[in-house]
């Protein structure tokens, strides 16, 4: 039995992520935690998030979680979801500029409004185009639909780390991989069978 820790830094409702992970990993021990010790002892880490960048970063800093997040993202399989993807970058334009964790090189910026009537946030179901092979894509078709809710997107420096791309007015990186880290802008926990498969693939990664 493995222990999967969902990092709780007080910024989001984690019940959806917890329920989906419990569903795909019925034999594992799934915990929601902000304890350094529990996170360090876990086999895999899930790092979700919602809300504004500045508040997320201040919650992470208030709980002294920045170091443990960095350490664990290097040492073991680590999945960032939504804001949990964005704050892995160096810097976000949100809230007049926010320093982020700097685990992946690059920045976060708002969608360009490329035409009139384009609604921001990007909210709803959109396709993810697979850019490279990766274990997280096992059994998931190219251009599968995921559920998204966000106004900002990531621009990683290393384009080779982009493993999934989505188009909304412009093409953006919707799934990234670097060493032990996989991160997704959409919400696999709300993306029906495809999203559950994505989570299951993460659980099975070693």
């Amino acid at each position: 039995m493995k222990t999967i820790a969902i990092i709780d830094y007080g910024m989001s409702n984690l019940s959806s992520v917890l329920k989906a992970v419990e569903y795909v990993a019925p034999n594992d021990n799934v915990i929601v935690s902000s304890s350094l010790k529990e996170i360090n002892n876990a086999d895999k880490i899930i790092f979700p998030g919602q809300g504004a960048a500045k508040k997320c970063m201040s919650s992470i800093n208030d709980k002294n979680l920045a170091c443990v997040i960095k350490k664990n993202s290097i040492e073991k399989p680590f999945l960032g979801i939504c804001m949990g993807m964005q704050v892995l970058m160096d810097y976000s334009d949100e809230n007049n500029g926010t320093e982020c964790l700097g685990i992946i090189k690059g920045k976060v910026r708002r969608f360009h409004k490329t035409k009139d009537g384009m609604k921001i946030p990007h909210m709803g179901w959109n396709r993810v185009k697979k850019k490279t092979d990766h274990p997280i894509w096992s059994g998931i078709d190219d251009n599968s639909y995921f559920y998204f809710v966000h106004s900002y997107l990531i621009e990683p420096e290393n384009k080779a780390s982009v493993i999934g791309e989505t188009e909304y007015g412009e093409k953006f990186c919707s799934v990234i991989a670097k060493d032990n880290i996989v991160a997704i802008q959409g919400h696999p926990e709300k993306s029906s069978a495809i999203g559950l498969k994505f989570l299951k693939n993460f659980i099975e990664m070693s």
């Binding site: 019940s15 959806s16 329920k19 989906a20 419990e22 569903y23 559920y147 926990e189 709300k190 993306s191 029906s192 999203g195 559950l196």
Partner: peptide
């Protein structure tokens, strides 16, 4: 429902 159906 949220424990078994994974859409919004």
């Amino acid at each position: 429902v949220a424990s078994q159906v994974f859409i919004p």
